[in-house]
Computed example of a mutant assay.
Amino acid sequence: MKIIRYDGWEDIDVQFQDEFYYIKERQTYSNFKKGEIKNPYDRTVFGVGYVGVGEYKTKENGRFTIYYQQWKNMLLRCYVKAERHHAYENAKVCKEWLNFQVFAKWYDEHYYKIKESLQIDKDIKYSCNTIYSPQTCILIPQRINLMFTNKPNNCGLPNGIVRQGNGYLAKYNHECLGKFDTVEEAYHYQTKKKKEVIVELANEYKNIMPEYVYDIVVKYEFDIRNDKNYVA
């Protein structure tokens, strides 16, 4: 940080010496000497994210805004090791979304009102995607997003598939869908049932969700090759 304009102890402009070269005007020399002039481009959130400069606030009326909560939680999942599970393995946030202002603008433009919370999803639009970005993410109702949750197991088989004798049982919730010769066949019928339930649930939101979000959800295809629990 250096002084680029000086008009007395109570009126200086400073420029931060980083990649952004942001200028903060009408600061005091006293705060400059004490290092108390804050740079909005400092990566203060988990060492990667920064608030930036723009119209979107991190707090209103003493509470974090929904924009900031969603942004911070996204960074938390990607960059705080203790918070990761296999769904976020190798997950990253694109360069532009490390700037809170850019993310908040995208969220604001894609927000739609529902009774429950909206969640940011990175891998329904593009299966196995690991990058949070405006090109890859959608905002989706929590109930629908939970349908795509794939909890880790140590069985080497997709969730809902159980080895029995020389075959495989396919289950969905508490319903047994049958016994099959191969894990691939069992997976086909298990995910076929799961997709029917997802489409039925999506239809409840058809007049609420944007059309493109609805289309992405109902056109999703499960593929055993993308199942992280499956060991061939």
Rank of each mutant, 00 (worst) to 15 (best):
V80H: 13
V80D: 15
V80P: 03
K81T: 06
K81L: 06
A82Y: 11
A82H: 11
E83T: 13
E83Y: 11
R84W: 05
H85D: 13
H85F: 04
H86W: 08
H86Q: 12
A87M: 12
E89T: 09
A91T: 07
K92V: 07
C94W: 03
W97D: 06
W97G: 08
W97A: 03
N99R: 06
F100M: 09
F103S: 04
F103P: 06
F103W: 02
A104T: 02
K105L: 12
K105D: 13
K105A: 09
K105S: 09
Y107A: 03
D108V: 07
D108K: 02
D108E: 11
E109R: 08
Y111T: 06
Y111D: 07
K113F: 09
K113C: 01
K113L: 02
I114Y: 06
E116Y: 07
E116D: 13
S117K: 14
Q119I: 14
I120G: 07
I120M: 09
D123L: 04
D123Q: 09
K125Y: 11
K125C: 08
K125D: 06
S127M: 08
S127I: 05
C128N: 13
C128P: 01
T130L: 11
T130C: 11
T130I: 12
T130V: 10
Y132G: 04
Y132V: 09
S133P: 02
P134R: 01
P134Q: 01
P134F: 04
T136P: 00
C137T: 14
C137W: 13
I138F: 06
P141W: 12
Q142D: 06
N145Y: 03
N145E: 09
L146F: 07
L146S: 05
M147T: 04
M147K: 11
N150Y: 01
N150F: 04
K151D: 14
P152E: 12
N153Y: 00
N154R: 06
G156S: 08
P158E: 04
P158R: 10
G160A: 10
G160K: 08
I161K: 09
I161C: 04
V162L: 12
V162S: 10
R163C: 01
Q164T: 04
Q164R: 15
G165P: 02
N166V: 02
N166C: 07
N166P: 01
G167A: 02
G167Q: 02
Y168P: 03
L169K: 15
A170F: 00
A170L: 00
K171F: 15
N173L: 12
E175A: 09
L177K: 00
L177P: 14
G178L: 03
G178M: 00
K179W: 07
V183N: 09
E184W: 06
E185F: 05
E185K: 14
Y187T: 00
H188Y: 15
H188C: 10
Y189F: 13
Q190A: 10
K193M: 15
K194S: 02
K194E: 03
K194R: 15
E196A: 14
E196D: 12
E196L: 13
V197W: 05
V197R: 11
V197D: 14
V199Q: 14
V199M: 14
E200Y: 12
L201E: 10
A202V: 05
N203Y: 10
